[in-house]
């Protein structure tokens, strides 16, 4: 599949398979369009060439109502900011997809919401408003909301970014446990190498619109590509240079101050 925005080619003829029931990580430097990839899978963006199939259906050939049905059935998404509806309480946020898409009575919804919140450990916070939550808590509520309709696949957009170690540990545990307990397919987009690698079954490393490497975490760590090793190891200098391209230092100093 290929996708470009303006003149920039974001994805150049990439080919990926996400395996059902497993945690697949998509990693790469910032700005390579990892969030864009999730939006392409979800049908919010259209590729310029190629196709994306979810559960056997070609996402971009569906009518709008069919697309919405597909999303409802198969996809849950956890946004980087949580994307909770700010004028609803935690409880109402998690109940939102249930109220919109099912005809369940309030008592049933009540039970379901509490169970989902229990799964992420925030049942006691159910009456708080999103503005009162910390970032990590907001993400957990968003996760509870994403699994409200028991989708087959959950996409995580940078779930670990900007979290303190404890919250990060909580999220890592939740993603892993959810996937295995509920038999979900998880797609984690991240550049937090260690955390993501610790729970992934399969990793795709993307750079400049192409898949640089793919394999199990063990394969990736032992990669023959120096760039991949720099990325995975968090090294300061390597194929991605430390210095932004510029003329030699001596020339710069000798030229003096430009007026």
């Amino acid at each position: 599949m290929s996708f470009s925005r303006g003149e920039r080619m974001i994805f150049d003829n990439i080919d990926m398979d996400i395996v059902r029931g497993k945690v697949t990580a998509i990693m790469g430097p910032s700005g390579t369009g990892k969030t864009t990839l999730l939006k392409l899978i979800g049908g919010q963006l259209r590729p310029d060439a190629g196709t994306i199939h979810v559960d056997g259906e070609n996402v971009h050939q569906l009518s709008q109502s069919a697309l919405y049905k597909l999303r409802q059935r198969t996809m849950g998404m956890l946004f980087q900011s949580g994307a909770l509806l700010t004028d609803l309480s935690v409880f109402d946020n998690v109940a939102f997809p249930l109220r919109e898409h099912t005809a369940l009575p309030e008592s049933a919804i009540h039970h379901l919401v509490l169970l989902k919140l229990e799964a992420v450990g925030l049942r006691g916070a159910r009456d708080l408003m999103p503005a009162e939550l910390s970032g990590g808590m907001a993400r957990r509520v968003a996760l509870a909301r994403a699994i409200a309709l028991d989708p087959e696949m959950i996409m995580y957009d940078e779930p670990f970014t900007g979290q303190d170690p404890i919250s990060m540990g909580v999220l890592v545990k939740l993603i892993h446990d959810m996937n295995h307990a509920l038999g979900l397919t998880s797609v984690v987009v991240s550049h937090d190498v260690d955390e993501t690698a610790s729970i992934s079954d399969y990793i795709y490393v993307i750079s400049n619109g192409k898949v640089v490497q793919n394999g199990t975490p063990v394969d990736i760590k032992q990669s023959s590509s120096p760039w991949v090793r720099q990325f995975m190891g968090g090294l300061a200098d390597g194929p991605v240079p430390f210095h932004f391209p510029a003329q030699p230092l001596m020339d710069d100093l000798l030229q003096g101050v430009k007026r």
Binding site: G42, Q44, Y68, Q80, L85, P97, H101
Partner: peptide, 21 residues
């Protein structure tokens, strides 16, 4: 503000049409 905090996007992914809601 809803757009920039991705609430509209999030709604779409929850299969609720933000146009309607």
């Amino acid at each position: 503000l809803m757009k920039s905090t991705e609430q509209l996007s999030g709604m779409e992914m929850m299969a609720v049409n933000p146009m309607k809601y």
